[in-house]
Amino acid sequence: MNKVILMGRLTADPSLRYGQGEKPTAVARYQLAVNRRFKREGEPEADFLPCVAFGKAAEFAEKYFRKGLKIVISGRIRTGSYINRDGIKVYTTDIIVEEQDFAESKAAANQRDHASAPPVGEDGFINLPDDLETELPFT
């Protein structure tokens, strides 16, 4: 059985293209950053997995998914290979998306985005701390 379920954050907005042919099919590609549960020293904290959605799922991803959004997907792993322009065989691994959904509410996503944003004053400018000059590495 080839089945995978992943939850992570989008590293960028999905890209959408349409295949060629009589009935062009929508194809969305996006990368999912999935945190590792157990981390060894010197290893990355997340895996970055390329995902591909087709048809209505691709159009949905392009319309509603944005960088940083936490989503959950289920699908299957597809491996392949091709010969690049230099004549070297390149191996590929993609997650073919069968189902995809939001893993956090819109309110939680907005709260996360605003929590990391610096405070803005009444004049519309970011409020900087008074001792900022001592923290800058280039002063």
Rank of each mutant, 00 (worst) to 15 (best):
A53N: 03
E59Q: 13
G42E: 07
K39F: 07
V52N: 00
R29L: 10
V72D: 01
K56E: 09
A28Y: 01
R37D: 04
L32Y: 05
R36F: 14
E62L: 04
E62I: 03
F65Y: 13
R36A: 03
N35A: 10
V34Q: 04
R66T: 14
A57P: 01
L69I: 11
F48T: 09
A58H: 02
V27T: 09
G55K: 10
L32Q: 06
K67C: 06
A26T: 13
D47S: 05
I71K: 13
R40L: 15
R29A: 06
R37N: 09
A58I: 10
P44L: 14
T25W: 07
A57M: 14
V34I: 07
K63E: 14
F65I: 08
L69P: 01
K67L: 14
K63M: 09
A26S: 08
G55H: 05
G68E: 05
I71F: 04
E45I: 10
K70R: 12
C51D: 01
V72Q: 05
V27Q: 05
K67Q: 15
G42T: 07
L32C: 05
G42M: 12
A46W: 01
R40V: 14
R36Q: 11
E43V: 11
K70I: 10
R36L: 10
T25P: 00
A46V: 11
E43M: 07
A28Q: 00
C51S: 04
G55P: 01
A46H: 04
V72H: 05
P50H: 12
F60Y: 11
Y30D: 04
A61E: 06
V52E: 05
K39Q: 12
A61M: 01
A46P: 03
T25R: 13
E45S: 14
P24L: 12
T25S: 03
T25H: 06
L32A: 00
F54Q: 01
K56G: 03
N35K: 08
G55W: 03
R29D: 08
R40G: 15
